[in-house]
Write a protein that binds this DNA or RNA. Structure first.
Lengths: 209, 209
DNA sequence: GTATGTGAAGTAATTCACAGCT
DNA sequence: AGCTGTGAATTACTTCACATAC
């Protein structure tokens, strides 16, 4: 093990390894080499070993990694024994899709609250969750122990919503609004900018040689 | 101007600058410094200048950038005079949300086709687009001149869908399925893994010091 | 022989810092 | 005086390559 700061891309890839290990153990495959795990995840053998090396020594020279052992170790490292409560703010098409997305619950992320500012939507129930007024956010975040907020509102109101989430004591934010949000140092902010991803692809179309 | 290879993060940020410049010109702000543009986009002044430096010299020493001039230059660089046709494969909650997302069309990305394998969905119309069988993909991609495919199907069938898109002559792919896809070198693949983004936030909750 | 773990080397991206222009 | 443009320095991340373990 080394004790250097772990780069965020490493964390992100550990979740990929874990998913693959879950599949492998389901298939009763007991052992895997870094090379084979790399093939399955489109990463290099060296990267697999280096990434794991940030957290310990999990392999056996000459044979590779015990799939179940490594799976358990990664679950421990990544905190997969715990579950987290999540709120979605902005229940438009995207917000509604996030409420319905099965991948979150499977991975220990429970969406337990939904907020919107539209009177037409407040009180309606989607996927078992009643849409609340944004005014109820502080109370609900505390009562339901919500630690992550997802922002899927239009860009013009996204900063305001972020401020409200933070003052309601949410710890981290996943932002889908296409705008740069300002948040305090301690809040981890991740941005997903769908238009930008597509636009980047279009750049390569426009500039193909 | 330098003629080094342009890193992809630079391309991605140019779209951010462009959006901001569109706002600035709307507000009749004629000039902006790299520092001010950086504040508005949460980037450093040096980064703004360096990024623009890949494509030319757009500024005036001592006063900054003419907002309209820079906007026009970026539109040119990024190919914003052109529009592109896009297909969505997999019309579940997420696929449906993407069909309805207004941000794409605003930016010259027109979703012109939708595919699903479910008999129940084929023939239905969403946002003016009739959902087609995946068998019709080759014909439709050609007829409608579709150059980008969006994959929003479950992980188990994502590779199969990617292969079908590629053999239908789609140029680039935006993949929402949480799995590593194999595509030929010439195909640009971008991945958006929603669960992984949320999971990464949960890691920091589990490992907060 | 086969595969790990890890320093060292290499590559990529960001930030610094300042000469030079207006 | 203020701000750009850009080499140089720095930092971040990845790949190499090999000593070591089984």
């Amino acid at each position: 093990m080394n004790n250097k700061k772990v780069p965020e891309p490493v964390i992100s890839r550990l979740f990929v390894y874990l998913r693959e290990l879950i599949e492998l153990t389901k298939m009763n495959i007991r052992t895997i080499s870094s090379g084979e795990l790399g093939v399955r995840t489109n990463l290099s053998d060296a990267q697999v070993r280096k990434d794991l090396g940030y957290f310990g020594q999990f392999g056996v020279s000459g044979s590779g990694y015990d799939t179940n052992e490594l799976k358990v170790a990664l679950e421990e490292i990544l905190g997969k024994d715990k579950t987290w409560n999540v709120a979605v703010v902005g229940i438009g098409h995207l917000g509604g899709a996030l409420l319905a997305y099965p991948g979150f619950k499977e991975r220990g992320l429970n969406i337990v609250a939904a907020f919107d500012s539209s009177k037409r939507k407040i009180g309606k129930k989607i996927k078992g969750i009643i849409i609340q007024s944004i005014d109820e956010m502080p109370k609900t975040v505390t009562n339901k122990k919500i630690s992550i907020g997802i922002i899927s509102v239009p860009a013009k109101v996204a900063q305001e919503v972020a401020d409200k989430l933070i003052s309601s004591r949410v710890k981290h934010i996943l932002n889908f609004a296409p705008i740069a949000l300002n948040v305090p140092e301690k809040i981890k902010l991740k941005n997903v900018d769908l238009s930008r991803e597509l636009e980047t692809l279009s750049y390569f179309l426009a500039n193909k040689k």
